[in-house]
Amino acid sequence: MSDRENIILRLIDRHSQRLLRDWLAYQQREAKYGGTQREAETAELARRFLDQLRASARIAQFEDVETIEWRPIRELLEDLSRDRAVQGFSPTETATFIFSLKEPLFALLREELRDDTERLVRETSTTSRLIDRLGLYTIECYARTREEVIRRQQQELLELSTPVVELWDGILALPLIGTLDSARTQIVMESLLQHIVNSGAEIAIIDITGVPTVDTLVAQHLIKTISAARLMGADCILSGIRPQIAQTIVHLGLELNVVSKATMADALALALRRSGKAITERKQPAAPGSS
């Protein structure tokens, strides 16, 4: 058993310079984009990988890359896939790093076991399995990093898309633009309620001019937001209801049960009246240039 496994190790030990050279050559042939800096980085990484492979394989089972002995290798691959994912490499380009090690290793095996075909087949298949596992692990890490990036971007986008503005002392406005789904409504709701607490505003105008469609789900989300604000002691006014949305609401039989106004201007007028304020025209128009 140990003898069988050690043949690959022995080959790596004995031919490490050649293996590294061949491996890098393969990688360069596969790579679409070059650059001396990247080549140097890859070479350094490949050197570290081979060193680590020798150290890990000496003590560990080839079959199981999940064990503790393989951890340094796994960490190295994690770093690699994270770097490449962030730099915009494709999964293939990322995994080629590992998979391109197959050919040079097979070549070494072929030379070494020229006279023992049965053993050559066995060793080739063991080596192939190991490289496959490491390659798949690399792809998994790559996918995880991409998911993280996507999640972060989604989060940032959600936060960007829900500004709460103060229209007047004690009057907030939340202009909603785009489709309202559950995740977004959750953020919108939290953001509005937090602004209500921070500013002490008792009236919030939710403007849906920019919301393309209002279906049952969206209506429910709006109602929940308005109910939560009411529980905290603030009132909401819904504005910007376009004619076709008014029709949909009636056709769907949705009961919004909330004060609504056609335009944000009407809503602001109502909000001002409720808070005991009024905007009046000046008796004398201000001269241009003075304030």
């Binding site: 002490g200 604000a229 905290m232 002691g233």
Partner: peptide, 24 residues
């Protein structure tokens, strides 16, 4: 009432009808 509490109450289905509320 804290925002997180208000959101949870709405989801729970508790309207507190009959109770008046204020911010502070």
């Amino acid at each position: 009432m804290r925002p997180a509490v208000a959101i949870t109450l709405v989801e729970l289905g508790l309207g507190l009808t009959g109770v008046r509320t204020a911010l502070n």
